[in-house]
Amino acid sequence: MSELGESVFFSAPDGLRLHAVDHGRGISDALPLVCLPGLSRNARDFAGFAEHFVTRAKPRRRVVCFDYRGRGLSEWDRNWKNYNVVTETEDLLAGMAALGITHAAIVGTSRGGLIAMTLAAMRPGIMRAVVLNDIGPVIEGDGLTQIRAVLSRAPKPSNWDEAIALQKATMAKHFPALTDQDWASETRAKYREVKGKIVPDHDPALVRTLTSIDLRDRLPTLWPQFMGLSSLPVLVLRGEHSNLLRHDTVQKMAKRHPDLRHVTIAGQGHAPLVHTAGIPELVEDFLKTRRR
């Protein structure tokens, strides 16, 4: 197995060729983890996180990380309107079936957490526990505005050093805890080198899913979808400087959910890097104490 695990390709329900990274496929003694990245992100965000569970955690666990359509090594969709949570949840179910995953703990960063909540409505029995990384049923417009601005004005670095510097300049205010190594890892996960050029690793049309939303209006809440997780143990990670998930929203989530644990990740914003700040150990402990 390589550092990034084993690449696996499968077909979406509409025939699009999609990609996942399977870490520790031979591990079968514990519930596997299925990792779902943020809106424009990809499976590489979970490489370090997966390494912990495959090599050091007790018990060791298989970890499968998905690239949504239009991200990472998955095929781009000709119709940008298919970049939506319902379609991506259907893609996930197809991928889990192709990889023989009947039950899993879901780790969802931002968009991935929305997919977990959608999964609770479409196929709740497939989940045994859920980690929501900086996402909840109330999404702040300021956070979406920032994400839209970053996607709309994606820089075009000429080399990796410049890419790292640009990433740090964009995010450092909300991520003072990150080290130089963290910035390099974050940048390598976000960008890909294609024909000598360093480009964001997603379909540029993805930004249209946000430009089509009027962020001046009050965004709808997702409390019914969140309550679909009420029968499952849930761990919520919130970045201390997050502008997408408010602290008071997490408090309301805890009051409504009978088995919810929440942790603030110091010195990070939206969304915390899951291989840092002891997050792998937090998730490992969460799964142990829930006897899952």
Rank of each mutant, 00 (worst) to 15 (best):
L92P: 04
L132S: 04
L18M: 06
A277K: 00
D182N: 15
D77S: 15
S2D: 15
V8T: 04
H247P: 05
G228Y: 00
V263C: 06
H52Q: 04
V194K: 15
A189P: 01
E88P: 05
G136C: 06
D214Q: 09
P32R: 09
S152A: 14
N79K: 08
A47V: 10
W80P: 01
F10K: 08
A20Q: 03
W183R: 00
T211D: 11
I198L: 13
Q225R: 15
F175N: 05
V63P: 00
A149R: 11
R78C: 06
E6G: 09
T179G: 12
V63A: 10
S158F: 08
I198Y: 06
F175D: 13
K190D: 08
G141Q: 13
K190G: 12
A120H: 02
A266F: 12
D77E: 10
V86F: 07
E88F: 06
E281F: 09
L273T: 11
P176T: 10
R17G: 04
D22R: 08
V107Y: 08
A266D: 14
I126L: 12
K58T: 12
R69T: 02
V236K: 05
V131C: 10
L4W: 10
G112S: 07
H275R: 07
R60L: 10
V107A: 09
M122Q: 11
T221F: 08
P13W: 07
G26N: 14
G70H: 05
N82W: 02
H270Q: 09
R123K: 13
P272N: 12
I126K: 05
R128T: 04
K195Q: 15
L39S: 00
R128C: 09
I279V: 15
K173P: 00
